[in-house]
Simulated assay, not measured.
Amino acid sequence: MTENAASAMDGMYRHQRYIYDLTRRYYLIGRDQMIADLDPPAGGTVLEIGCGTARNLLLAANRYPRANFYGLDVSEEMLKTARAAINRSGYKKTISLAQADATTFSPTDLFGLQNIDRIFISYALSMIPPWQAVVDRAVSQLSPTGELHIVDFGTMASMPTLGRRGMRAWLTRFSVTPRLDLETVVRDAARRHGRSATFRQGRFDYAALARIGAKLS
């Protein structure tokens, strides 16, 4: 992603960040299930790519009090909201944030970490044009036993035609594009890095949950 991409995201979220969580809670389905599946090791490291308002990081930190949490986002505007939310919480010492490009980020440069035990991406790939590069970069930064967890819009293939068309048209207004080949990209990335992969979609194929697991022995 470029500096122009960061500016575009800042422009989009400069005002939306105040109502983002309230307006997204009804259609960003599967986020809490993804968090429940993380199960990081005690003392492990967990990174969210595209952390936005820190909603997911705060829920994860509450669920896994023995892990350490990190978040990155290209939008400094969203990070303002995230920092404020974390400062109001009891997790100021547990969660660290940084502004970074998801296609080239370095845990070492940002947080002093060699690799990460769990990385998760929630409804961000559908907003990032070079999203395949984000998946590959994330996998490359995992520890040998680490996992990448993804939740995003699914294919919507089993939705009624009018509903599917209407939903996709509405998402386009917000620069959101469901990644119809997400499963293929996830499985290909896992294969390249010598890891396992799972993929499933929920009701009407509305939401997709993907996981790239530990290195295969």
Rank of each mutant, 00 (worst) to 15 (best):
A207S: 15
L162M: 12
D10Y: 09
A42V: 13
K93S: 14
T198H: 00
N62F: 12
F69M: 08
T155E: 09
L180G: 14
F111M: 04
G112D: 02
D73I: 06
A197G: 07
I121F: 00
S96M: 12
D188V: 10
P129K: 03
A210K: 00
L110Q: 11
I35D: 05
R83L: 10
I119G: 01
D188F: 01
R164V: 01
H193C: 05
A5E: 15
T198N: 01
K215M: 13
R203Q: 10
I128F: 08
R137N: 14
T161S: 15
F199Y: 14
G112W: 08
D37C: 06
S140V: 04
N115A: 12
P130F: 03
R55L: 10
L79K: 06
G90P: 08
D152R: 07
T184K: 15
Y26N: 12
L97C: 07
L216H: 11
R195A: 00
R55T: 10
R31H: 10
A102L: 03
L57I: 05
L59C: 12
N56G: 12
S89Q: 09
P130M: 03
T155H: 11
F69G: 07
V176Q: 03
D136H: 13
D181I: 11
A6L: 07
Y26R: 14
R187Q: 11
R118T: 09
T103H: 01
A60L: 10
E76M: 10
I128N: 02
A5V: 11
Y18M: 11
G11D: 14
R203E: 14
V134G: 05
A100V: 04
V74N: 07
S96F: 04
R66G: 08
A61T: 02
R164W: 04
T198V: 07
S196M: 02
A214W: 04
T45Q: 07
L113H: 01
R168F: 09
D188H: 10
E77H: 01
D152K: 04
V176E: 04
A190Q: 01
P65C: 06
Y206S: 09
K80M: 11
R195Q: 03
G213I: 06
A102N: 02
T81N: 12
H15R: 15
Q141I: 08
R187T: 09
I212T: 02
A189V: 12
T198Q: 06
A190W: 00
I150L: 08
R165Q: 14
I119S: 00
T184L: 13
N68C: 11
V185I: 10
F174Y: 15
S126M: 11
R168W: 04
N115Y: 09
T108W: 14
R137K: 13
L72I: 15
G71H: 04
F105S: 01
T2E: 13
S106G: 04
E76D: 15
S158F: 08
V151E: 02
Y18A: 15
I95L: 10
Y18N: 14
K92W: 13
D73Y: 04
L38R: 00
G154H: 07
Y13M: 08
V46A: 09
S75T: 07
Y26A: 14
P65M: 04
I150V: 08
F174S: 14
L182K: 01
G213M: 03
I121E: 00
A6G: 13
F174G: 08
R66V: 13
D39I: 13
G52E: 06
Q114Y: 11
F120P: 00
A124D: 07
T198I: 03
